[in-house]
Amino acid sequence: MSDTPRADGSPGGLTHLDASGAARMVDVSAKDVSARTATATGRVLLSAAAVAALRGGGVPKGDALAVARIAGIQGAKRTPDLVPLCHPIAVHGVDVDLTVVDEGVDIRATVRTADRTGVEMEALTSVMTAALGLVDMVKAVDPGAEVTRVRVEEKTGGKKGHWRRGE
């Protein structure tokens, strides 16, 4: 990080800090509206018994994957309520995919908007709330469930354009 203040007075590239270092919400009103997407992924590590219950429909609370999918969609829409400096934006689409694997469940969320700021935080929140919804549904079978590897994989739109992990 550079110590040189940005044109907006914030120190060295941290746009959520003002010139004195205090947290602030960035003013995006001058930015152009553009189509934007973000995809995030994560994994819930589960016991073999929990994986078997998911595969066989034997989760005591019901359809854990459906509940997790709805939790992920709801989480994307509620992100500004959970992340203090996140802008409330119009979320135009959310896809949450859950795949049962031998180690647990892989989660992939893609969020879309046409707005003045990106949806990376919405995609991350979608993955986390889907994971929490899943953990809540399977905790009777596996109290040791673990949420891991939550990260942004790709984003499009905005001034910086397209970014993909590993490129």
Rank of each mutant, 00 (worst) to 15 (best):
P60Q: 04
D97T: 07
D142T: 04
I89M: 03
A52E: 13
T79L: 07
G158W: 09
A140S: 14
K31I: 05
A53Y: 05
I89S: 01
T99N: 09
D27L: 12
A140H: 08
H162N: 02
K77L: 15
R69T: 15
T15F: 11
E153H: 10
G13I: 04
G75R: 01
A23E: 12
S29W: 07
R112Q: 15
K155Y: 01
G12W: 14
V59Y: 07
L46F: 02
G56H: 10
S47M: 08
S10M: 03
G9W: 05
E120C: 04
H16Q: 08
L17N: 02
E153I: 06
K159D: 02
E153P: 09
G166R: 07
T15L: 13
V59C: 06
P88T: 06
A30S: 14
I70Q: 11
T156N: 04
A48K: 12
E154D: 07
V83H: 10
A49T: 13
H87Y: 12
V101M: 02
E122H: 15
A71H: 01
R69M: 09
P60F: 08
G9H: 04
G93Y: 14
A130V: 07
P143K: 06
A90D: 09
D97I: 08
L65C: 06
G161K: 01
T39W: 01
V127G: 01
R151A: 15
A50N: 06
V135T: 10
T148A: 15
S2M: 06
H87N: 08
A90F: 12
H87P: 03
E146T: 07
M121H: 00
L65G: 03
R165G: 05
E153S: 01
A38C: 10
G144M: 11
D142N: 01
H16P: 05
V111E: 00
Q74L: 13
R116G: 02
V150K: 06
E103Y: 01
M1K: 06
R149L: 10
P80H: 15
A50V: 03
M1F: 12
G21A: 09
P60C: 09
M121G: 01
